[in-house]
Design a protein around this nucleic acid. Structure first.
Length: 382
DNA sequence: GCTGACTGCCC
DNA sequence: ATTCTGC
DNA sequence: GCAGAATGGGCAGTCAGC
């Protein structure tokens, strides 16, 4: 039942201590079926799909606003008032629904919503495209919200806007999964890093922890970017030996560049969006590298020298007139890490070792080069 | 077809 | 990205 | 020190409406 999931939300929201939040969610996950685990995980973090999914709800404030007016059958002034009172659309809707129930405007004896129904409805919203899609999206949402209790309506609104605001994000969800199924936290974190799919991680933790441990980085599947942070921790290590490692900071966008064993190339942004088609010159350039790999780098607008970030965003998600823009706004890819090479994960190698291999396989060219960095004992050089 | 509102996502 | 807050 | 929340600016793509 959706009600039970919403109760978890309420409880987690009512405590500020992380450990209590983790405890509540862990207990719930343990009692959740294998089938529903992924969806429950996505919903608890204010989403419906895994990070790398190209599916989008394409429902924002304006659309949702209209849905609420229709479901509650109220004037805009009332919704504005409620929103101003709470400063949160979900809370405002909860309040409006409660008032409606009190005066008997909404029936209470409807079939209660299940998690599955809710997910199916939202999935349908994501799939509707093309002409009059907005109306159809609204119709589905109105139907869904019409069956929801005040608390459920709030929860659904919060999922759609993505603003959960209950002090519970990926980090705590990882800990909850670890606790629920007695799997080492580092295993959970690594599994999430290499799959970018927290729902799948939870599922495996429950039914096949052995397989969870074996999950590894693979070209074509976006890597959750946390390696830069790992590198920073390495810095401290070097500092203890009197040396530190500094990366040159580029003003561009973070990218993962994948080439699998079949030569298929994919480029992902930090949030695992596939932008391969926007960067054909980069694709052509990495085709020449005679290996399979996963590279971590930064694209920067570049004409003789790096230019302002502003120019870059006109390239990044472009799907039309790409060829013209390749010339109009030239870019360069600075690579600073190598995570995978020819069938082997390198993420457990020291950063400096990865850099060494990286510099061996990358020849500087017009579109690509290895990023500048310094290993030094002199702080001033930074 | 053109324009504007809307959405999502980069920093 | 950057800044603030509570643990 | 860490994790989560809140905040700002800009652009491409998509759909609605004229």
């Amino acid at each position: 039942m959706l009600r039970e999931l919403v109760e978890v939300y309420e409880k987690v929201s009512s405590f500020s201590e992380k450990l209590r939040k983790i405890d509540i969610v862990a207990r719930f996950l343990r009692n959740t079926s294998e089938k529903l685990l992924p969806v429950v995980c996505y919903m608890l973090r204010g989403r419906i799909f895994p990070d790398y999914s190209p599916k989008e709800l394409d429902v924002g404030w304006a659309t949702l606003w209209n849905c609420i007016l229709k479901v509650a059958n109220i004037g805009e002034d009332k919704l504005i008032k409620a929103y101003n009172m709470f400063g949160d659309l979900g809370l405002a809707v909860e309040h409006i629904f409660k008032v409606k129930h009190k005066i008997g405007m909404l029936s209470l004896d409807m079939k209660p919503l299940t998690v599955e129904e809710t997910y199916n409805a939202l999935q349908e919203v994501a799939e509707v495209k093309g002409e009059s899609s907005l109306k159809r999206k609204q119709k589905i949402l109105v139907g869904l919200l019409g069956r929801a209790s005040p608390e459920e309506a709030k929860f659904i609104i919060k999922i759609i806007t993505g603003e959960m605001r209950y002090g519970f994000k990926e980090g705590l969800l990882e800990e909850s999964i670890s606790k629920a199924f007695s799997v080492n936290l580092d295993v959970v974190k690594k599994a999430y890093m290499v799959t970018s799919d927290i729902g799948y991680v939870a599922q495996l933790a429950k039914v096949n922890p052995t397989m969870l441990e074996k999950l590894n980085i693979k070209p074509g599947i976006p890597v959750r970017h946390m390696l830069a942070e790992a590198a920073e921790k390495l810095e401290e290590g070097f500092e203890r030996y009197g040396k530190a490692f500094f990366e040159f900071k580029y003003d561009g966008a973070r990218l993962g560049i994948h080439k699998d064993e079949n030569g298929l190339i994919k480029i992902f942004t930090r949030r695992s969006e596939d932008v391969t088609l926007s960067l054909p010159e980069i694709v052509e350039e990495v085709k020449k590298i005679p290996h399979s790999f996963i590279l971590d780098g930064e694209v920067v607008p570049f004409e003789r020298k790096p230019k302002a970030y502003q120019h870059l965003i006109r390239r990044l998600r472009r799907k039309y007139d790409v060829k013209e823009y390749v010339k109009l706004i030239p870019v360069k890819l600075y690579i600073f890490d190598l995570l995978y090479l020819d069938g082997n994960s390198l993420i457990d190698l020291p950063l400096l070792e990865r850099r060494r291999i990286l510099e061996e396989i990358i020849k500087p060219s017009r579109y690509i080069e290895v990023s500048r960095c310094i290993l030094t004992s002199n702080i001033e050089e930074a």
